[in-house]
Structure formats: C-alpha cells, structure tokens
Design a protein around this nucleic acid. Structure first.
Lengths: 148, 148
DNA sequence: GGGTAATCGTGAATGACTCAAAATAGGCGC
DNA sequence: GCGCCTATTTTGAGTCATTCACGATTACCC
C-alpha cells in the first residue's frame, strides 16, 4: 500500500528515492519519531544509510510539506505525517513521549491572540505538558516544576 | 530600584550573587534574551563572567522559579521574568524576535484538551508564529512554508 | 540507454549546552 | 567584624543534534 507515497513525493516536486519512501512509510507506523530512532529503524532495511542522510531526507520532506517537524523543548526534533488538520501535542515531562491532541474547538479559537504586537500571525502551536500514564504509575511522587 | 531583587533571590532559597542580580536586572530591560546575548551584555559590567556561569545562573534561577525558560523551535533557549500570569508568545519566523501575547480569554480555555490520552496535564504552552513588523517591511515576498 | 542534476555518503565542523573538579565568595553563627 | 562551611563560579573538556562541504551515486527526462 505504500504505492501512493511515491505520488505524494513526486507531487511535492521531489525525486522518489528509497530512503524517502522508507522514511514516510516508517512515520506512518511510528509517528513523533526523532532523527536518531528513524535512523535506527531504517538500518534494519538499509544498513548503509547514514544519520546525515536521514537528516537530509527529513529536512527535504519537511520543507516540501510532506512531514511536519515538531520540536518540543528539551528534546530532539521529531517528525510526523499528520498534516492539514491543526492538531496539537501532549508531551510527557518525564520521558518525552508525545501524543496527538485534536483541537476540539473545531477550528483554532486560540489561533487569535489578543494583541499581535504588529506581527502577521501565520500559525499557532499548542503544546500540553504533563505526565504520561506510564510515568505516572512509576513515580507517584508529584514532580517539582517541570516546565514553568 | 533593583533592591528587592535580592529579596526575591533569597526568598527562593538562593544566595545573592552579583551575577544573579545582574541577570535578573538585565531581563527586566531585555526580556526574551538568550544565554549568549545575556552573556554579551553582562560582560559590559563584569568582563570576567563566563558563558558557563551564565548558563549556570540561568538554570539556577529557572529551577528556583525566578525566571521562565522558553525554547521556541529553531532558536536557543530564551529567558524572561514575567511569571505567574500565563501569557504566550509570538515568534517571528524570519528573525526569531519574540513578543508577549496576553491570553485574552482570561484563564486558559485552550488549557483543556479534548482527549488527554491518559496524560495528566500540568501546563499548556501556546506559541504563535508569524512575521514581525520589521521583517514584513524588509521582505514583501511572502515566505514559502516556515513552520508547517 | 545516456546525460544531467538532484540526492546520498563520508567526514569534518558548528552551536548550545552539560559535566567535573578546583578556586572563590556568600552568609550564617559567634 | 571574623571564620567557617557550603553554594556558586571558573576553567576546561565533552556531549548531542544538527549542519556544511564535496565527491560518488542515482533518479528521471529524453
């Protein structure tokens, strides 16, 4: 079923290469992966791929609009393939796990700040910080001050 | 009038040192500064201060809750002294300039995601991405795809 | 199938930050 | 005001994710 990935890539004006196909396919199954884990998974299929190529591929895909790059504080950049819908993320302050959060309120209520200070707003990004179920069970101790 | 800064520092359980006072004072005048520019400004007053000390001071102040650390993607960590009120930021996709944005809606409407995926949400962070007035005048050309 | 430019591999380099150990200085009790 | 103890700073090296440069390879158009 990865056949139309090629079409996507080509439609974005990029050449279709094995690496790019693999990265896209991989991001379907493992969203929110960072460059290093993508590299690790890719090596299973193509042992010769280098981490630089992964960065290369990812930034090509990102600037072509095929993947979205998210960079939570304290964590390497991660990539995901869900595009178009403006959804947000929950990040675990303990282990860095990321999950998607749909913007219930339909279409960006928070997208309109009160005073833009003259800025021309293009996008809004919402990140929720908390503790994921796994880490919550491990550490009962309420954490000090993770973000603020 | 920087006299009660000492009190603030002490109240947080930290020792009052010259560097910390200077950093706090500096952040009043130049909010959203990153470690490097803080270092540069500090050298005017105290030429012997090292960049590591600046990092040290900043992380001490941050974990004591005296400053807030903000880390927009594609930009080194920045620090500000506005605390308590949950305000957000506009970041210029061109030059990285940051301005404060008050959360009009009183108290965090966006703070409540639809499904938390089992996460225990602690804080929410909202970043707006756009083009600042300065960069808007310089480049009339609408930019490709800066963030998304 | 051949040519050409995009893409990948290799290697080195950068920026921002962290870690470790020795030198210094703040603030407590006296 | 004086010393002591420990928090903080300094100095220096090291880490991590990412980027840059350039030659080798490969996809795609004809």
């Amino acid at each position: 079923m990865p056949s139309d990935l090629s079409a996507d890539i080509r439609a974005a004006g990029l050449r279709v290469t094995r690496g790019r196909l693999q990265v896209l396919e991989l991001l379907e199954n493992a969203p929110h992966s960072d460059a290093e884990s993508i590299h690790a998974l890719l090596r299973d299929v193509d042992p010769d791929i280098s981490i630089q190529s992964v960065h290369n591929i990812l930034s090509a895909l990102a600037s072509a609009g095929l993947v979205r790059r998210i960079e939570p504080a304290r964590s390497p950049a991660r990539y995901e393939r869900r595009l178009g819908d403006n959804h947000h993320h929950v990040v675990c302050t303990e282990c860095g796990a990321i999950e998607d959060v749909d913007c219930v309120v339909g279409h960006a209520p928070c997208l309109t700040p009160s005073s833009t200070s003259g800025f021309t707003i293009a996008t809004a990004e919402v990140n929720f910080w908390g503790v994921c179920p796994d880490c919550a069970t491990v550490a009962e101790t309420p954490v000090a001050s993770p973000v603020a």
